[in-house]
């Protein structure tokens, strides 16, 4: 036991920072060691997606898509989409899963969301780098023309994932049935974001509809960042993705603020 007779109350920021740090370590260890092969799943999911689609593309004999090597096109598209997908999936459950932690008044529901988003973003970037290195070893030419644009696209998708999680975690808490419907409705996003088909090849007027999906802008922008010769979708506008993301984060924060007491009590 230690004596802290000259104890000063910590500032709110100091408490929050130490909570974030503790949660991060806790979440990271849990994510990697929750089962014996948890860390394998982490890698396997994108690799299986990649292998399956690569196989499909080989069947139709397409070596390049929109001027990009098919493997490169797939890896960048998949990993940028996963920036949204995994962050949103993990943050959505964050509040519910960490229910037991609110016994400690230092831990607030929103902390768990930020920490999970940060962790997933970190893992996403790590995975992207590892997959790219793997692809290079297999002889794929992974040169990036405009790294800043790729980063901006990834960040935009990550922010979308965060905004989504901030909003959906509250919805999931109070109306789990509605949240299931939202989950179901958002499944086609995978297809509608142009992960497995080039949007530029879709005829009008359908393409205009797909261009309403902010995620498609992020996915296409990251491919354009890889090669400036890539035939991206014509209406590409990264600012659209950011506007969407910030609007969602704003409403998400609003919900978190408004329901911060109810979220703890149950």
């Amino acid at each position: 036991m230690t004596d802290y007779s000259n104890h000063q109350p910590r500032s709110s920021w100091a408490i929050t920072l130490s909570v974030w740090k503790a949660l991060f370590l806790r979440e990271a260890v849990t994510r990697i060691t929750s089962s014996r092969i948890a860390w394998i799943w982490l890698f396997l999911e994108p690799i299986v997606h990649f292998a399956f689609m690569m196989f499909m593309m080989t069947v139709v004999h397409s070596r390049t898509i929109g001027g990009l090597d098919t493997a490169e096109w797939l890896i960048i598209g998949l990993m940028s989409f996963f920036m949204f997908k995994r962050v949103s999936a993990q943050t959505k459950n964050a509040i519910k899963v960490n229910m037991a932690l609110y016994t400690y008044r230092q831990v607030q529901p929103i902390d768990t969301i930020f920490v999970r988003a940060y962790l997933e973003g970190f893992l996403g970037i790590l995975l992207t780098i590892m997959l790219s290195v793997g692809a290079v070893l297999f002889g794929v030419d992974m040169v990036i023309d405009d790294p800043l644009m790729v980063m901006a696209a990834f960040l935009g998708l990550w922010l979308m994932g965060l905004g989504w999680g901030l909003m959906l975690s509250v919805l999931d808490f109070f109306l789990p049935d509605i949240s299931k419907v939202v989950d179901m409705l958002s499944t086609p996003l995978y297809i509608l974001s142009g992960v497995m088909m080039p949007i530029a090849a879709i005829p009008e007027p359908y393409r205009r509809w797909i261009e309403l999906n902010p995620l498609a802008h992020g996915v296409e922008a990251s491919r354009l960042g890889v090669s400036s010769f890539y035939h991206a979708m014509p209406g590409l506008d990264l600012a659209y993705l950011y506007k969407f993301a910030f609007a969602m984060i704003f409403f998400g924060l609003l919900l978190q603020r408004h329901y911060r007491f109810q979220l703890v009590a149950k």
């Binding site: 408490i15 130490s18 909570v19 503790a22 260890v29 929750s34």
Partner: peptide
């Protein structure tokens, strides 16, 4: 899923 030690460390950390 975490060990006793890891859980104890967590509580120490959030208390600064």
């Amino acid at each position: 899923f975490l060990t006793g030690r890891q859980n104890v460390k967590f509580v120490c950390r959030i208390h600064g």
